[in-house]
Amino acid sequence: MKGHAVRSLLEFNGVTKRFGGFTLREVSFSVPPGYIVGLVGPNGAGKTTLMRLALGLIRADGGAVRLLGEDPTASRAAAAARARVGFVHDSPACYDYLSVERVAGIVAPFYPTWDSARFSRLLADFGVPPKAKVRSLSRGTKMKFALALALSHRAELLLLDEPTGGLDPVFRDRLLDLLSDVIGDARTSVLFSTQLVTDLERIADFIVIIREGRVMFSGPKDDILDRWAVVRGGPELATGLASASRWGVATTRQGVEALLEDIEEARRLFSGKALVEKATLEDAFLLCREPSGKGE
């Protein structure tokens, strides 16, 4: 993602943000046009904070955020940029005493590119009753409604904060297909945060792994799937693995395991002494951590 030739729709450049007991540390990554970027991390890793920074709801303490080329906390330019952004919050249930169509009636006028026919079609596709009060919807249906709102104004950038939370597996599958279709025009991009690595395996082009406010990895998903290796062996390999892996070694019941960025190098160093396999995103998610996490 760094050094991508086309101008990015969203950029975080050395962004820091401190809350009470939480610090986002020098986060840098970008979302290029026409790609889906998966932001994956455990609860409290900083995913929602990054979404809020992207929308200008909070200010960075250091570094720079650029939304469609604009500082999202600047007034007019940022407001104009937000017209080209669709977002889904992790809790989309505001104005729950109103009906679905009434909430849409409130939101639609703010977007010059709002497409009512598309919104109606999405509601029908998603099985969201337009006359129903928002409070009567299940969490999953509320999320579908929020997605329909975000997808109905032909946004260039979709910011989706844990959109698959509360969704049943069947609809999650359909949503992932839908997102793939959305970026089919190579103009729309998606930043998609989740705790479910399986979501990203299906659709993400780029992966950002964030843990305790620090980006542990950002780059193409295929780099992980094609080139990375996970090495599992007995405890006697701990020292060798620790010097070969930039993320250190995790201790398991069977011995130790570590992530290496070059599967050929891993085979050369550890074949015959340990099990060397292609890494999955799950491996990357679990093992990309500070070296101080050894032994966890």
Binding site: R52, L55, G56, L57, S75, R76, A78, A79, A80, A81, R82, A83, F87, H89, S91, C94, Y95, D96, V107, F110, Y111
Partner: peptide
Amino acid sequence: IEWHFDADHFVAGLPVTRAA
């Protein structure tokens, strides 16, 4: 009303300035 429905961030995320 936005405060009551925890919708401040929702409205501020729309294409409007805080001044507006």
